[in-house]
Write a protein that binds this DNA or RNA. Structure first.
Lengths: 364, 364
DNA sequence: GCGGCGCGTGCAAACGTGTGCCAGAATCCG
DNA sequence: CGGATTCTGGCACACGTTTGCACGCGCCGC
């Protein structure tokens, strides 16, 4: 506050009293803000020249460019991107809204995303959607910062929100959620195919009493995957679905779930498909250590995500590989693409099954 | 480009021809930027009134405030924070520079950090220091965005960089690195104490041939921890240090390391302290599964970090707990603290050992 | 040698906001 | 009812940039 006041007076005074007086005080950087004016003065050129030096392919002679660069270096000048954005109407900010943090693949995702954006001279603003500050709140903040595009992970905008984004010219990209008719780009895996493939894998391995376990029952892509999985199981004459459980996510929940299920009176599954590697590993530990089962002999387990932990020695989990890098590449392209008339678009990236040792080999 | 041009013409024209003409076109939001001028006009007040409505405890009558809010809602107005920052000189942006992403605790850290900052109306800008865009580059970007403070995780500024930050009035907070005489705030655990405590734990359990394994040999806090650990071992008459290895980080590296060490001709350690839970778990799997050793009987293992995986059933790793939340709380306080004359400060958060089952009980 | 042409540079007007200052309105009190 | 006091809203300037426009200068070709 105090500094700001002092500075204002300094500036104003200098302006009114022409600019002679300024020369005496200019070189003392009382406060941060060495501005283009300061370096212009030191270099003996106009502010335009400074600006043009820092604008790629602007018309500036080699001589002045050098003078300006020297002065800038001496003063430690950094162009104020906020002011620049104000006039160019491009903030070079990309917003990321995270709905959930459980999944181990988010670390890799974040790293890749920030690296790739940085390489293209964009910055990443990270927001978490919490109960008290929900998706709409996070988006509102991002709009206030004039983010050029927003990536949503593990959460969905409601249609009104999506609408207000496009009205502001802010592109919206959603990872692995069903976005229906909303004017957003959708980057996801082929969930129906994943469901089918996993089901087929289990059926061919000779499992007969199949189960499926996932988290939030309202997530549409999980629903799509599960439906395809169940349909494939149902289409087989020999096998049937004996378990369809929602609301279990994470190691502890997975471990608890398998114990409850197998102690239950109902039909015991001999294979389960978990919607997350962590859940699958929890189930695996529960089955082996708590119940003494043979995996994959008595129980087959398939996870989802191919987290690093899935390949560790005691687990060696058969799982669905999520191609993080292609997914991020697609997302970045969509985020940075010039706004088109119709923003609605869907990008599907490939994924495959990593066969390890929690599912037995195919029955001959 | 095209839109920007059109808009400029629109604005300029409207101004020159007084403002009557504007009324006819104003309500069609051709492009984003509904500005305070637009809502002022719709509400029939001046721009100042709009500004004051959105400024906490500014002098505005209830009547106009309501008019303004109604107009703002109708137009979907969001104050432009970039312009606001320009004049208030406060961007409400906090930069985070990540040097490395391996550690599983970073996910929790990021979540907590973003949540806590959001709750205080700050935003988080996430940068990764890569070989091509190093710490200095990341900081430069953040300065260009006028970030109010910067948090560095798994990386260190060089003194010149730190200097240039304080000159710009940007606070610098570094997590768990030795920052010497630099004008930065340092948030860390008591590493010497950790080293001592772990050594004592192992000695009291009766282990006699002790080893220590860590990653980057240049990280000073790891050095401090290791030194204290080694000194404590050396002070004991009965035990001695038989292994001091650097450059091993992660599951695979830990597993490989233990195999190499125990097949080596040299003296075989009967207990090791790993500078990361992941390394420790790799070593644990290597010892049990590859070499058939009894842990903790033949080999004691201590990790660092208390990652979720450390508590999983097959591991149940004895490890040093890193108090993430207190650490983040301290960091947030330091980041948001008003700039003081001398920014140099050190905050130490407590940590303790979580005793599980990879170290045997104390010898009686 | 002169008109034109192109390049480099400075001037000034924006971008969307906050806020000190002043004038007018409203309120209160005697 | 009048004067003093508080409140409220508008004007205009400032923040640090970019960029259209115009002008000056050196060079080329006829």
């Amino acid at each position: 506050m105090a500094t700001a006041g002092a500075r204002k007076r300094r500036r104003t005074g200098a302006r009114k009293k022409v600019r002679a007086a300024r020369a005496t005080t200019a070189r003392t950087p009382l406060r941060a803000g060495t501005t283009s004016r300061d370096v212009a003065q030191l270099a003996g050129v106009s502010r335009s020249a400074v600006s043009r030096t820092f604008t790629p392919d602007a018309s500036v002679s080699e001589a002045t460019r050098r003078k300006v660069l020297a002065a800038a270096a001496e003063l430690g000048y950094q162009p104020n991107v906020l002011a620049r954005s104000l006039i160019t109407d491009r903030s070079r900010l990309i917003g990321l809204v995270m709905g959930e943090w459980q999944n181990p693949f988010y670390a890799t995702m974040l790293r890749l995303l920030s690296e790739k954006l940085q390489r293209r001279e964009y910055q990443l603003m990270l927001l978490t959607a919490t109960p008290e500050d929900d998706v709409a709140g996070a988006v509102r903040r991002l709009l206030q910062y004039r983010a050029e595009a927003i990536l949503m992970v593990s959460c969905t905008p409601d249609p009104a929100l999506a609408q207000s984004c496009v009205r502001d010219g802010t592109r919206l990209v959603v990872v692995n959620r069903d976005t229906g008719a909303m004017p957003v780009t959708n980057v996801s895996t082929d969930n129906a195919r994943i469901g089918r493939d996993v089901a087929q894998l289990l059926l061919q391995a000779g499992y007969r009493r199949i189960g499926v376990v996932r988290g939030d029952p309202n997530v549409s892509v999980a629903k799509a995957r599960t439906e395809a999985f169940k349909a494939t199981v149902a289409a087989s004459r020999r096998a049937r679905l004996v378990l369809d459980q929602t609301g279990v996510v994470g190691y502890a929940a997975g471990r608890e779930m398998i114990r409850a299920v197998l102690r239950d009176g109902g039909p015991r599954p001999d294979a389960i498909f978990c919607a997350s590697d962590l859940t699958a590993i929890g189930a695996l530990d529960g089955a082996r250590l708590d119940l003494g089962l043979d995996v994959p002999g008595q129980l087959g387990i398939v996870g989802l995500g191919d987290a690093p932990v899935a390949s560790w020695a005691p687990y060696d989990l058969t799982t669905v590989q999520l191609p993080i890098e292609p997914l991020i590449d697609a997302a970045v392209e969509a985020l940075l693409a010039p706004a088109t008339a119709d923003a609605r678009r869907a990008i599907v990236v490939d994924s495959g099954i990593v066969q390890r040792s929690t599912v037995r080999g195919p029955r001959r």
